[in-house]
Design a protein around this nucleic acid. Structure first.
Length: 956
RNA sequence: GCGGCAUUGGCGUAAUUGGUAGCCGCGCUAGACUUAGGAUCUAGUGACGAAAGUCGUGUAGGUUCGAGUCCUACAUGCCGCACCA
């Protein structure tokens, strides 16, 4: 009772009451539209973007907001520096989890998605972000996905011209075909036979459409895909890892299906080159380079012995032409059919069936050497020798030409194969030993090329050259003699764009005579229809097969009943939907102009905002989203729709926040629990305990008993009257009972404390564990700051002139914090604030001239408390519109420097020396000093090193 | 296997970029105020040592007047790619 009364009186006398303060200013910011931004040509722009979240059912845990807090600090900082800051947020709200949930519960994904978004919003709002919510986008909303569909149609209507190195309209391609056929067209394309203008003109609509399909950037083709039966769905390469789906971890099979794909591979070189012009971490760029997988090499044609047939292989080791002892085809290669002889037909058939049964996962994990001889031989164009052509699954159909020349001496995979099937091995590097393993390194001097004593078959000798020289010489020879060509290969494949799923963007496509046609642009968006059953249809079609209104009336340009599809006036619509990455590929452009119903983004808005200056998000999108959106952006750039060809200038990956789990130790077979330091005296088993009922590793025993029924009668073996828990750093997850909810932290300590603590934990980019135990430190800091303003319950700020000491404290903080924000070292900035407030408290400084700039400096980090104090000292406009203070060097200069004096590198004492002294004066002062004489012991120093302002080292 | 990053007190981390290692915070110890303390304040807190001092930034070398920082090798951990010819 007494305590309550005291509390009331105290808060009346202005204690730091974060709950009231934070609520009050959050409302003020809404009421005053503080965070609304518009194009303003009088101010420089700055665009700060967070990777928008997929709103999952679990809500945010304390790890999620880290990146948002960092971007918010930087946004607020830039605004105080005079920039017009675009800082939007939205939701990546199409995707698998909501649909899986729908299948399990019958709950429509739209409903769960809406609920999850509301929950996310509620949680984010409590943290005090400076988002302009009027610009919110949701990928599942029709006025947004209209532009996803529109972009897809543009990709359908364009092809990739290798001469222009850019996307060009299909209409242009048709003109070329009409005039000269396709012989001179250089395009990123699927395999297409040559044809003349006459042939082209003679073909009917369908045949022409089929040809054009080979050139389109969004194209429909039979593709070898990753199919996940458990998800009932095809997945892109980045959605599969080691033969398992990234989401769910279900097995993935390879099969051929007719699918939409995006010709991302056409952009491979530009995606690679672009990396050199953007400010991303080296590791992320490296990941992208790996994923793009550029390799320079040569394609060489091999004739088949006793046949007119020939085929092409790709190699990066052209220097090893003279060591080829066999050839290998991928089992899926078309060549297998052509090159298998009658005698080998059965054996080959058996082998193909056997490999087909093996899943990709088996092929990866269990690398046994398998293969079969095709019966044919190939003629090495450099030696004239005939070498056997084998078939093996260690060669991939999708890379290069699906066929290789095997050089067992210098390739470990070929080596394993040769050993297994007892094929010859010819070493080509002087002095290399290939009796036990192959010599794969690209170094050494080439020999045996050609072998001594053998009559040369061609006029090329590589003997005596280095590997590097030999590769170059061979490439030159291949080109000159027209044996093949120099070729660059990329690992990056086209992105499969169809998903046999409901909860995604519908394709704005209908089918006439089995060929796809785009529904007219003015009819977009094609809205996702309602369905009641989210599973595939009985005949194996995607869930959209259940839709009642899923036909297209071509003449009336309108939706029609599925039942009325007659393939004359009413045609079937595409049943697949787009994948998750579709909606996230251009959302950063839409934020620039989110309500425009005429264009994805207006020229005016795009000219002003350009591209994202700072992008913050997790590293898990390194090969998916960050490749696709760069591709998407470059495509739109080719069409002259946007002005920048790289979407994200600077990118920072925030580190993962791990969980800190707590354990209790149960004596095996009992309901008795032993405190941490006594556990070794018993046979115990560690059990995860909810971290929210543990404080500083001390278990709240009552809460533990109430946590779960099985612990109601738990007994304890205590130490010093307490139960101490063990701990471990693990992923933050429900099952480990280590999830900490930001709402709880905000409730207990306030949003400003949460914000400060999240970034105080350590460097932004580093993974680090969340440990609520440390949070008191930053909370205390805010209370101390509050205490500078209020003494004895009254506002104590004066207009007195600050002392030099106080100004020094302020200005060194301004200097450090400014530098730290610019270099995204927020944790050290918080530390600088703490030092500053500690010093000001020591100095009993309550002077406006010091405290006001400090508030502005701190406001990006702790916007609520600073806004409150800002108004308390008499300001009437938001602190968001203040000016960021600039430090003045004159307050920082020292008249005396404390020099560490070291002998042979070991510091022995310090000496105060005037800052104006030069090297010689310092040296003399130090050498004359009594303490120095003690350490020199009468010896004459060999050398004295004086670094002005830093250190003195005396070498004896 | 290839590539990238990291390794500092009991814990999270800091170090002006080659110049006094351990700032700031947690935790811990002692004390003050208090009926009380999971409040507040004060002092201490890398290891060994009574002290002087010695040792100390994953390990072993090297460069330097001087190395947590640069170089070489190794170990451990994390991440990416991986039968890509």
């Amino acid at each position: 009772m007494q305590r309550n009364a005291l509390h009331v009186i105290r808060s009346f006398f202005m204690e730091y009451n974060f709950r009231d303060i934070e609520q009050k200013w959050q409302q003020y910011w809404i009421d005053n539209a503080t965070y609304k931004v518009e194009v303003d040509n009088n101010r420089p722009k700055y665009y700060v973007l967070d990777m928008f979240p997929y709103p999952s059912g679990a809500g945010l845990h304390v790890g999620h907001p880290l990146g948002y807090i960092a971007s918010d600090i930087f946004s607020r900082y830039k605004r105080l520096k005079g920039f017009n800051v675009l800082h939007p947020m939205g939701y990546d709200s199409y995707g698998l989890p909501a649909e899986q949930y729908a299948i399990q519960t019958g709950q429509h994904p739209e409903i769960t998605t809406k609920q999850n978004i509301e929950r996310y919003r509620e949680q984010m709002d409590k943290i005090g972000f400076s988002y302009d919510w009027s610009r919110e986008v949701r990928t599942c909303s029709p006025d947004y996905y209209k532009w996803t569909q529109w972009a897809f149609q543009q990709m359908f209507e364009h092809w990739y011209c290798l001469r222009a190195d850019a996307a060009r309209p299909i209409s242009m391609l048709i003109d070329i075909f009409n005039e000269q056929g396709n012989a001179k067209v250089r395009a990123a394309q699927n395999e297409t036979p040559l044809f003349t203008a006459e042939e082209w003109k003679s073909w009917d609509e369908k045949r022409q459409q089929e040809i054009l399909m080979n050139y389109r950037i969004a194209y429909l083709a039979d593709t070898k895909v990753n199919f996940c039966p458990k998800l009932g769905c095809v997945l892109a390469n980045d959605e599969v890892s080691e033969g398992l789906s990234v989401r769910g971890g279900f097995p993935v099979e390879q099969c051929v299906m007719r699918q939409w794909s995006l010709r991302v591979s056409a952009y491979a070189q530009r995606l690679l080159d672009g990396l050199d012009r953007i400010d991303w971490t080296e590791s992320l760029k490296e990941t992208q380079r790996n994923w793009i997988g550029r390799s320079e090499g040569a394609e060489v044609r091999f004739k088949v012995k006793d046949s007119d047939f020939e085929f092409t292989i790709f190699t990066t080791r052209a220097d090893t032409m003279f060591g080829v002892t066999f050839m290998v085809l991928a089992p899926e290669s078309e060549l297998v059919r052509c090159l298998t002889t009658d005698e080998q037909k059965c054996a080959v058939k058996d082998y193909l069936e056997q490999t087909k049964k093996r899943t990709e996962r088996e092929r990866i994990t269990d690398r046994q050497v398998t293969g079969v001889f095709s019966g044919s031989y190939a003629i090495n164009p450099f030696t004239g020798e005939a070498v056997p052509i084998w078939i093996s699954d260690y060669v991939l159909a999708g890379y290069g030409t699906g066929a290789i020349m095997a050089v067992p001496a210098h390739d470990s995979r070929d080596y394993a194969f040769a050993k297994h099937f007892n094929l010859p091995i010819v070493p080509l590097i002087e002095g290399c030993d290939v009796s036990k393993e192959s010599f794969d390194a690209k170094e050494g001097i080439v020999c045996n090329s050609p072998r001594q004593g053998v009559t040369p078959y061609c006029d090329l000798s590589l003997n005596g050259l280095s590997v590097e020289e030999a590769i170059a010489a061979t490439k030159k020879y291949v080109e000159a003699k027209k044996l093949g060509r120099v070729k660059v290969n990329y690992r990056l494949r086209d992105a499969i764009f169809s998903r046999q799923r409901y909860w995604g963007e519908p394709f704005p496509v209908y089918y006439k005579d089995c060929m796809p046609y785009m529904i007219p642009e003015e009819c977009l968006p094609l809205e996702l229809p309602e369905i009641s059953d989210f599973k595939p249809t009985a005949d194996g079609n995607p869930p959209l097969g259940h839709a009642k209104q899923w036909g297209w009336n071509e003449a009336e340009k309108s939706l029609a009943a599925t039942a009325d599809i007659d393939n004359k006036t009413i045609f079937p619509l595409e049943l697949c939907t787009m994948p998750g990455f579709a909606g996230s590929s251009a959302y950063y452009l839409r934020y620039m102009d989110p309500h425009n119903d005429k264009e994805l983004v207006s020229k005016t808005a795009n000219d002003y905002w350009q591209s994202v200056d700072l992008y913050i998000g997790g590293t898990e999108h390194a090969t998916g989203h960050l490749i696709y959106s760069r591709f998407w952006n470059k495509f739109l750039f080719d069409l002259d729709l946007i002005v920048q060809d790289e979407p994200f200038q600077k990118l920072i990956n925030q580190g993962m926040i791990q969980g800190r789990s707590n354990f209790v130790y149960r004596i095996i077979g009992t309901n008795k629990y032993v405190s941490y330091n006594l556990k070794n005296q018993y046979e115990t088993q560690p059990i995860h305990v909810n971290v929210n009922i543990v404080n500083n590793d001390v278990l709240d025993i009552e809460a533990f008993r109430n946590w779960m029924p099985e612990y109601r009668d738990a007994e304890f073996v205590l130490e010093d009257g307490k139960y101490i828990c063990g701990w471990a750093i693990e992923k933050m997850s429900k099952s480990m009972f280590n999830v900490v909810n930001p709402d709880d932290i905000v409730e207990k300590y306030g949003a400003d404390t949460l914000r400060l603590y999240e970034i105080f934990l350590g460097p932004l980019e580093q993974s680090k564990p969340w440990d609520t135990n440390g949070i008191d430190g930053v909370h205390r800091f805010l209370k101390k700051l509050w205490g500078l303003f209020y003494a004895g319950g009254n506002l104590a700020v004066t207009d007195a002139q600050p002392t030099d000491e106080e100004l020094k404290t302020l200005h060194k903080t301004i200097k450090k914090v400014t530098h730290d924000i610019e270099s995204f070292s927020f944790n050290t900035a918080v530390s600088a604030f703490m030092i500053c407030v500690n010093e000001l408290a020591q100095q009993k400084c309550a002077k406006r001239a010091v405290l006001e700039p400090l508030l502005v400096l701190l406001s990006p980090f702790a916007p609520h408390i600073t806004e409150e104090l800002w108004h308390a000292v008499g300001n009437t406009t938001s602190i968001c519109d203040a000016k960021f203070p600039v430090y003045d060097e004159k307050f920082l200069v020292e008249s005396v420097v404390k020099y560490p004096i070291s002998f042979n590198g070991k510091v022995r004492f310090t000496l105060d020396i005037s800052a104006t002294m030069n090297k010689e004066e310092i040296e003399q002062t130090v050498l004359a000093n009594n303490q120095t004489l003690k350490f020199t012991e009468g010896k004459t120093p060999k050398k004295v090193i004086v670094v002005p302002g830093k250190i003195v080292n005396i070498v004896l």
